[in-house]
Design a protein around this nucleic acid. Structure first.
Length: 565
DNA sequence: TTAGGGTTAG
C-alpha cells in the first residue's frame, strides 16, 4: 500500500529528524506511535516520540496511550503530569488506562477532576466500570449522563446481561432509541452467556444486517448448548473469517470434548495464514490437556515465549493445567512461580493441580501464601481444597475448611462442595455423617453425592442403605448404568443372587448402557488409545506382560506396607 | 477518546 510504504521509508531513515517537522510529518509520526503501541512495541514507539523535534497534543496522547496499553500505567501517569497541554482526549485516555489496568478508583478520581467531559468520557467510565463488575456505580453514572448515545446504551445492555439480568437488558435493548450492529451482537451474546439460547436464536433471525460479532456469539451459543455440528455449519458459511470466530469454534470443540477437532481446525487456520493470538493458544493448550499431548503442549509453550504471548496470564494458567494433567507438576510449579501478574485463577489453578497430585501440604502452604498476598479465595479455591482433603482422606480438616469457608469467607457451599465432602466421608466409612450432610444441603442432592454413598455401601456391604440409595439414583437417572451395577455388586457380595438377576433385568428394561471407558498415552507424537478388553494394539502381548509385572510389584508393595502397619 | 463476538481454575 502506497501510504505505508511511504511512511515506512520515513521511519526507517537513520537520519536525525529535522528540527522543525511539517504538520504532515507530525501527523504520520503520531499514527505510527499509535500503531506501534497497539502492536506491543512500546520501546519503538517511545524512541520515535523522543526523536520528534515537533510534538502536538496528539503525539503526547498517542505515547500516553501506548504506555498503558503495554501495562505501564505509571509511565502514562508521569507523561500525563508532564504534558504541556491536555485536552479531553488526554483525560479520556488516562481514564481508559486506569480502567484497562484494573484501577477503577483512580479512574473515578481523574473523571471527577477533569475540567470538561464529553460523551466519550462518560461512556469510557461507564463501560469500564461494567467490565470490572462495579455495576451499581456504572448504572448510577449512566443515569447521570447529560447525553446518551448508542454506545452508552449498548454498554448498559452488556452490563445488565453480565449481571445475569437478561430481562432488564432486553427491556433496555428494546427501548434503545437507535440500535446498530454492535448493540445486536451485545444483546445476543448476553442471552448466550446466560443460557437463553432460544432467545438468542430469535434475535439472531431478526438482525437487520448480520455481522461477524453476532454470528460468533451464535457459534458460541450452539457450542454451549452442545450442538457443535450446527455451530460448525454456521462457521463454514462465513466467507471472511476473522481470528475471533476461529477461536470461538476451536474453544467450542474443546469444551465439548472434541480436542482433536480443535487441533485439526488450528492447522486449517494456520494454512490460511491467520496469526494466532493468546486465545488461540489457550484453545490449543486446553485441547492438549484433555488429550494428554505433552509434546504439542510444550511446543505451544515455546511458541508462546517466542511470540511474547506468554505475557498473557490466562495462557499461563492454561499451560499450568496442561503440565499438571500430563503429569509434570514440577513444570506447573515452575511456571506458576514465574508469572509476574498472577490472578485468582492462577492461584486456583496451581492449588487444583497440587490437589490432583495428592499434595495436601503444598495446597495448604499455597493457600496461606495467597492469603498473605491479599488474594481473596473464591468458591473454586475451596472446592480444590476440599478435593485435596478427599484425596488425602483428611476428614477433620475438610470439615474445618467447610466451616471456615462459610463463617470467615461468607461463601455459600454449592452442590459440588457438598458432593466432595459426602464422597470423602463415605470413603472414610462415615456413612451416617454423609447422609446427614446430604439431608442438610439446600439443593436436591445430585447424582454424584448419592453415587458416593452407594459406592461406600458397596465397599462396606451395607445392603439396606445401598438399596435405598440405588433406588433414589435410578429415579434421578434411569439410563446410566452405575447405580444398577453397584447395587447388583452389593447383592452379589451378600449371595443374594435372585436380586442380582432382578437388577440386571431392570437395567436392560430401562435401556441403561455403560459408556465405555478409554485411556490413552502419547509416545513420540503418536497417541495410543485403549478401551476395556481391547486387544487390537500391535504390541498387546508386551503391554500385558508389563502390566502383570507392575501389578505384581504393586501387590508386593502393599504386602510390605500391610506388614509395616 | 467511548460500546460487541473468542480467553484460564472445579
Amino acid at each position: 500500500m502506497p501510504f505505508y510504504s511511504k511512511t515506512n521509508a520515513l521511519f526507517r531513515s537513520a537520519k536525525p529528524l529535522p528540527h522543525a517537522m511539517s504538520p504532515r510529518e507530525v501527523f504520520l509520526h503520531n499514527l505510527r506511535i499509535g500503531s506501534l503501541g497497539r502492536a506491543g512495541q512500546l520501546d519503538a514507539a517511545r524512541q520515535l516520540f523522543d526523536r520528534m523535534a515537533t510534538r502536538d497534543t496528539v503525539s503526547w496522547n498517542a505515547i500516553l496511550t501506548a504506555h498503558w496499553q503495554n501495562s505501564d500505567l505509571e509511565g502514562s501517569k508521569r507523561l500525563f503530569d508532564s504534558m504541556p497541554q491536555r485536552n479531553t482526549v488526554s483525560w479520556n485516555s488516562i481514564i481508559a488506562g486506569c480502567l484497562e489496568n484494573g484501577r477503577p478508583d483512580e479512574a473515578l478520581d481523574y473523571f471527577a477532576k477533569m475540567p470538561l467531559r464529553n460523551v466519550a468520557s462518560w461512556n469510557a467510565i461507564v463501560s469500564g466500570l461494567v467490565k470490572l463488575d462495579r455495576f451499581e456505580e456504572a448504572e448510577r453514572l449512566f443515569e447521570a449522563m447529560p447525553v446518551r448515545n448508542v454506545i452508552s446504551y449498548t454498554a448498559m445492555v452488556d452490563g445488565l446481561a453480565r449481571k445475569g439480568e437478561v430481562d432488564r437488558a432486553r427491556d433496555l435493548f428494546d427501548r434503545m432509541p437507535k440500535k446498530n450492529a454492535v448493540s445486536w451482537a451485545a444483546m445476543i451474546s448476553g442471552c448466550v452467556e446466560n443460557g437463553r439460547y432460544e432467545e438468542a436464536r430469535y434475535l439472531f433471525d431478526r438482525i437487520p444486517e448480520k455481522n461477524l460479532a453476532a454470528i460468533t456469539a451464535m457459534i458460541t451459543g450452539y457450542c454451549k448448548e452442545g450442538n457443535v455440528e450446527k455451530a460448525r455449519g454456521i462457521f463454514n458459511g462465513i466467507r471472511h473469517k476473522d481470528l475471533i470466530c476461529w477461536n470461538a469454534m476451536m474453544a467450542g470443540y474443546v469444551h465439548n470434548g472434541h480436542g482433536e477437532e480443535a487441533l485439526k481446525l488450528h492447522i486449517q487456520m494456520q494454512k490460511t495464514g491467520m496469526k494466532p493470538d493468546h486465545a488461540t493458544l489457550i484453545a490449543v493448550v486446553t485441547a492438549c490437556s484433555a488429550l494428554g499431548l505433552l509434546q504439542q503442549g510444550k511446543r505451544t509453550h515455546a511458541f508462546a515465549i517466542k511470540t511474547k504471548l506468554l505475557l498473557n496470564v490466562s495462557l499461563c494458567n492454561a499451560l499450568i493445567t496442561m503440565y499438571s494433567k500430563c503429569g509434570c507438576i514440577g513444570d506447573s510449579q515452575f511456571l506458576f512461580q514465574n508469572i509476574q501478574n498472577r490472578d485468582l485463577v492462577s492461584w486456583n489453578t496451581i492449588i487444583a493441580a497440587c490437589s490432583q497430585h495428592g499434595d495436601y501440604d503444598n495446597v495448604l502452604s499455597l493457600f496461606n501464601e495467597m492469603e498473605e498476598k491479599g488474594m481473596i479465595p473464591n468458591e473454586i479455591t475451596f472446592l480444590s481444597i476440599l478435593s485435596a482433603c478427599r484425596h488425602a482422606t483428611k476428614v477433620e480438616e475438610s470439615l474445618n475448611w467447610f466451616n471456615l469457608m462459610m463463617s470467615k469467607h461468607r461463601i455459600h457451599p454449592r452442590a459440588e462442595h457438598y458432593a466432595c465432602l459426602v464422597d470423602m466421608l463415605c470413603r472414610a466409612g462415615h456413612l451416617e455423617k454423609a447422609c446427614k450432610y446430604i439431608r442438610e444441603m439446600p439443593y436436591e442432592a445430585e447424582t454424584s453425592a448419592w453415587g458416593a454413598v452407594l459406592a461406600a455401601c458397596q465397599m462396606n456391604s451395607h445392603v439396606k442403605l445401598g438399596e435405598l440409595v440405588a433406588k433414589k439414583l435410578i429415579l434421578l437417572d434411569s439410563r446410566t448404568s452405575g447405580a444398577y451395577v453397584m447395587l447388583s455388586n452389593i447383592y452379589a457380595a451378600d449371595g443374594m443372587w435372585r436380586e442380582v438377576v432382578k437388577v440386571r433385568g431392570l437395567m436392560k428394561q430401562n435401556g441403561a448402557k455403560k459408556q465405555p471407558g478409554y485411556s490413552w498415552i502419547q509416545i513420540a507424537d503418536k497417541v495410543h488409545l485403549f478401551s476395556v478388553g481391547d486387544a487390537s494394539h500391535p504390541d498387546i502381548d508386551k503391554i500385558l506382560s508389563e502390566l502383570e509385572r507392575i501389578v505384581f510389584h504393586m501387590k508386593m508393595f502393599s504386602h510390605y506396607a500391610n506388614l509395616s502397619l
